[in-house]
């Protein structure tokens, strides 16, 4: 009798490098992750400003002027857009990381999302007050 031989030959598909472009859901996720690059650059510019401030008035003025360059303005508008995109998509996901039970019932997702927006609005107002006074 012939020994039993298997015809099995599982086929492993390769993950295409552009996998995240194949589906809008993945693309949106990648943009959300990518926003961190803009935020990092923004933070570096801000830190640079602090350094210039510590170096005296002239250095500080130079930094302020550099910010008025069209490229600097364009970058900041872009960074703001991306930061908002990150915030909105992140708030949408927030209920998944919250496990709040009231009277034996799970708190509804939209309550958690709303609470985040309220916190966001309050923090923005507080920041604006600090900056203007």
């Amino acid at each position: 009798m012939q020994p039993h031989s298997s015809k099995r030959k599982p086929y492993q598909r390769e993950l295409p490098v552009d996998w995240w472009l194949k589906h809008a859901f993945y693309t949106k996720y990648m943009i959300r992750e990518g926003t961190s690059i803009a935020i990092t650059i923004y933070s570096c510019i801000l830190a640079w400003g602090l350094l210039r401030l510590s170096q005296g008035e002239q250095a500080w003025q130079g930094w302020l002027e550099a910010l008025q360059h069209p490229i600097a303005i364009l970058f900041h508008v872009l960074a703001l857009g991306l930061a908002l995109y990150h915030t909105i998509t992140w708030f949408d996901l927030a209920p998944k990381a919250a496990d709040i039970w009231l009277k034996g019932k799970k708190l509804e997702d939209k309550v958690i999302v709303m609470a985040h927006y309220v916190g966001f609005a309050l923090a923005t107002i507080a920041a604006l007050i600090i900056i203007t006074y």
Partner: peptide, 24 residues
């Protein structure tokens, strides 16, 4: 936290939520 697992789940299990809660 891509979150697509919860989107495709046919039973509303929301595995992404289970994972995020575990991260906490």
């Amino acid at each position: 936290f891509v979150g697509y697992c919860s989107k495709v789940c046919p039973k509303g299990v929301d595995p992404a939520a289970a994972i995020q809660l575990f991260k906490v």
